[in-house]
Design a protein around this nucleic acid. Structure first.
Lengths: 354, 354
DNA sequence: AACAGCTTGGCAAGGGGTTGCCAATCCTTG
DNA sequence: CAAGGATTGGCAACCCCTTGCCAAGCTGTT
């Protein structure tokens, strides 16, 4: 049960390698990490020796001096949420592709924990992707001065970010609903601390005004399936004919509740989700939703972060610091004509034909 | 864009703290990490000073000397698979609860990558949880000599493990099907390298013999939703009336295919999944499946791993090295009576009443 | 008052690499 | 053939913290 220092094999260090071929440790180090700093012949000698001795570089020693850790962190409010699975997948894949280790931290929807995580983490990783942060701008800005940071679904002046343009998508969804004759819709909001949720509501409000329909914001709701029941009840209570949910989890949760209460989807109530997470296509009915390129967002964020790190020197035109990814509306079975809609209205902006 | 060494604030080290209150660095170090090794008064002084100066211990320096890294890794073949989400959740939660960092690595179903990961990772983490390994016993055994290891869903003499007892569950599922009059069932197998899949098939085979029914093993299939279509087709081709799928992903994937081909579930075909992942309860029809305590498995594995680490000294009775977690059958809507079954057979072991 | 035994703090040696600086070599070039 | 420049390799300091060992200071005992 002893590890690393058992009798069988002491850890072999860089100096063991150096000694074995009679060169200085610095030479070995360079051969291993600074291509072109040593002759090709020397490099081969070192590589061979290292291989034979089973040399395994100690990442801690390495990062201690170099400052680089070859790892990035992804900080999410809740690993439980399938939304973040896609993000995890994206960042993890890209990190690995670039030879970086991927540290995953869940802050459990707590701002304190998120703040603490950020400061603790900063010395031990090369950069951090912060998704759906619940922190105020200032805190993130502060953190970004201590460690390279990319935020996802958040916009802060001076901090690189990639946001998924759900507000625009929400408007699209609203158009879709209006074209089906809906005149009164509800937005079932996410956590009060969600920047994204506020943005969406603002976009919906504007669009509703333009379209001449009424929109209610209901909530906040925890972005979970369980909260979907409450959201469904609230929607019913508000007498709307269509719902825009903060995310698919809520929407899927509501589906069951609607069924329980005898509200047929989409005949009596149209339901629009957001994100198009795993499951949105095989729930019942399959969810009309805003397909968000989440995994892609993860990749892009990771790329941004790493691109920023490469910048060992000065120049290197700073990579894009702000990326907005479009969503698109995926229409499935959970949306349909408003109850009693005659289908007459073709130009939807004015609906006075009643 | 400079970090850590900007003009504003150089990193404050242990010796800064020491100097600020006029003590030796060793004292500060001990005050911070060895409770009781210094007087309470001194401890307070150090803590205060550290706080004021904004001291942030450098984890790499710390692990370099101490050997401890305060982080564990979870190695999975595919982060894409919802099954592993639950595992990730479990290990992540438990790791955090114990103050450990959680490193996530995806080996992309590749044995080479898994092997490489294990060796590279070993110096940089305190322990590793390896889930659904695709590696041969010997490789895992070897790795476990270099770094504390816990395997999930795998049994190897000498390596601590936690397995979910799906074979037993499969037998239960088979009983369930037989009680519904099914006489010919298929097991839609997972990857050929999956230890778990082989185990299950063996259990099914035995049980089928005991029950006097026929069971076919079909596959291997990649454990993905996409492969579900092929699995469904194969099942239809074999003329069985019920399917036991390697996992829910396959089962869910098959559901759609069955629908496309006009095979009604459960009227024409009963479907049993495995794992009860996210989505199994709201797909259509909701899946009868083997509910596996995956997240719990993650927690238990992490606990085992960490318990092993605490053992700084000798004694401390080695914690349980082998844990088998039971599954239970969750019956939903995807299973039903075999087509044409009259329901006469009450004692199911002999079915000669035709 | 002398001494033993314990507590507390300091010294300094690493832990395994990286890197700035310098010196020796080697290759061009005039 | 000499001088200048580019390569290549070595020395040694340093990254930040931990820890074995030792000494000083206390307390209490006889």
């Amino acid at each position: 049960m002893r590890h690393r220092d058992g009798e069988s094999q002491a850890t072999v260090t860089i100096s063991d390698v150096a000694r074995s071929i009679g060169v200085a440790t610095s030479t070995v180090s360079r051969a291993l990490t600074k291509p072109g700093r040593v002759s090709e012949a020397m490099r081969q000698r070192v590589l061979t020796a290292a291989n034979e001795l089973g040399y395994q570089p100690n990442p801690h020693a390495r990062s201690l001096t170099s400052g680089r850790t070859q790892s990035i962190a992804l900080v999410v409010p809740d690993v439980t949420n399938p939304y973040f699975f896609d993000l995890i997948r994206g960042t993890q894949a890209q990190a690995k592709a670039r030879g970086y280790r991927h540290v995953l931290v869940d802050t459990e929807e707590s701002t304190e924990m998120e703040a603490a995580t950020l400061t603790e983490l900063s010395p031990s990783v090369d950069g951090i992707v912060v998704a759906a942060s619940r922190l105020p701008d200032s805190a993130l800005l502060g953190a970004s001065e201590r460690v390279p940071l990319v935020v996802v679904n958040r916009e802060i002046p001076g901090v690189p970010s990639v946001v998924i343009d759900t507000p625009m998508g929400m408007v699209q969804a609203l158009d879709h609903l209006v074209s089906f004759g809906h005149r009164s819709v509800a937005y079932l909001a996410g956590p009060a601390t969600s920047w994204s949720s506020r943005k969406r509501w603002r976009a919906i409000q504007q669009a509703a005004r333009r379209l001449g329909i009424t929109a209610h914001s209901i909530g906040p709701f925890s972005p979970t399936r369980a909260a979907g029941a409450a959201a469904a009840d609230a929607a019913i209570h508000h007498g709307v004919t269509a719902c825009l949910f903060f995310n698919d989890l809520l929407a899927i949760g509501s589906l069951q509740r609607f069924a329980e209460r005898g509200v047929r989807v989409p005949e009596d109530m149209s339901v629009v989700g957001c994100d198009d997470i795993f499951g949105a296509d095989f729930c019942h009915p399959p969810l009309t939703t805003l397909t968000a390129p989440i995994e892609h967002a993860g990749r892009v964020a990771t790329d941004m972060l790493l691109a920023g790190l490469q910048t060992a020197g000065i120049d290197v035109p700073a990579p894009r610091q702000r990326e907005k990814l479009p969503t698109h509306l995926t229409i499935r079975r959970s949306t349909g004509p408003a109850p009693g809609w005659t289908g007459l209205s073709t130009n939807s902006t004015q609906g006075n034909q009643a």
